[in-house]
Write a protein that binds this DNA or RNA. Structure first.
Lengths: 213, 213
DNA sequence: TAGATTGTTAATCGATTAACAATC
DNA sequence: TAGATTGTTAATCGATTAACAATC
């Protein structure tokens, strides 16, 4: 399996997957890239290329088999073999993430959380234990957890990040609004809500002012 | 003010802003694009172009004034004149979003929430009232709220989306893992956590297998 | 067969990077 | 002045789109 996908194509795959689940639930067993493209507002050649990148081949006239596409996209996205993660910061956002049941089916399984607040330590949220922050280095390195989720205030995020890196983490999912400094081999995936918010307000401003894209 | 910024440049601005706040707190009054680029792992020409896109001019040798950059980026991102929003779906995620205090300083002010659950209706979360879903059309159209935040399960997201659009919303911030169908004039900003998760697992898989980018 | 749809090759577009002159 | 740093112009790179032949 040495199929390569561009980063941008990769980001569209989850969207296709949702769409395909929806179509499947409506009873479709095949789907054409043309229809997909139209309904998803994406260029049809792009859709065909993206689908081809998953290793699926379609048939002229009938299109692609829905089940096969779903299987291949799941495979591509790594949803079927999930990696373990720890979450740091059991505040409002952290608790929401812990309670959100969908991560595991998306390739990431949160196995424990850490916090400095004595009140939440040793409690459980959605069956995940919250440990005192001091125990992070020992637990993470012993269990070889590959993913760290940062849901702490901006001011302490870099500090937590360093601790995770020292403990041997390989990828970080960062919800704190800061640019984290990490060694090159470590992936930081920023959940960039600030950028989303900015895009929203810009859209509104443009509309108000009658600007053009 | 008719400065145009590419979408990709726009997405980097919040990062620069965080970085600049950090530098300012350390006592820096000027900063060079060269240093910024190095510390943020971005190409320095790109940084200079991005900063130029905010209308800020630097001086050879000394660089840019931190305060001026901060002012201009905030202006560009629309953080200083926030738009009102309503949130639909006061579940775990919805409540976390309601409790998260940072949106207002990022240009979006959530003024109310809606839910179908009788138990949460008429309660307050972080001083925001939760109304029964039935009242959405009337309230949103009467108050001319421009932004709708969707934090409901995937199955009902399109339905909620349609209601928001009918009520005259202009932009949607979508946390549900579905591709929403909207008229062309409406912006949908997807908070694409599934894509982030996929990127994380792909990074891990590649590292394990010794693949190259 | 005729027509819809795939998949590929070439053209375009936009964003990033390289090279370099201008300037404090 | 010398050197760091800006800002601009040209080159490169990657992703998207257009054109079209292949095929069910």
């Amino acid at each position: 399996m040495s199929i390569t996908v561009s980063k941008s194509a990769f980001r569209r795959l989850p969207g296709y997957l949702n769409y395909l689940y929806h179509k499947k639930s409506q009873g479709f067993s095949t789907i054409s890239a043309t229809v997909m493209a139209e309904e998803m507002n994406i260029n049809s050649v792009l859709v065909r290329k993206d689908l081809a990148s998953t290793g699926t081949v379609g048939r002229p006239k009938s299109g692609f088999k829905v089940d096969e596409l779903i299987r291949n996209i799941i495979e591509m996205l790594g949803y079927n073999n999930s990696s373990e993660a720890v979450l740091v910061g059991a505040g409002q956002l952290g608790r929401a993430l812990l309670s959100y049941g969908e991560f595991e089916s998306h390739g990431v399984k949160i196995i424990a959380a850490f916090d400095t607040d004595q009140e939440v330590c040793h409690t459980e949220i959605n069956e995940k234990k919250v440990f005192p922050l001091e125990q992070l280095p020992r637990l993470v390195s012993r269990l070889r957890v590959p993913i760290g989720v940062i849901a702490v205030p901006a001011g302490v995020a870099q500090d937590i990040c360093d601790k995770l890196v020292d403990a041997g983490i390989q990828a970080i999912w960062n919800f704190a609004p800061v640019h984290l400094q990490v060694p090159e081999t470590i992936l930081v995936q920023n959940e960039n809500m600030a950028a989303s918010l900015a895009a929203l307000s810009q859209h509104l401003k443009r509309n108000q002012m009658g600007w053009r894209a």
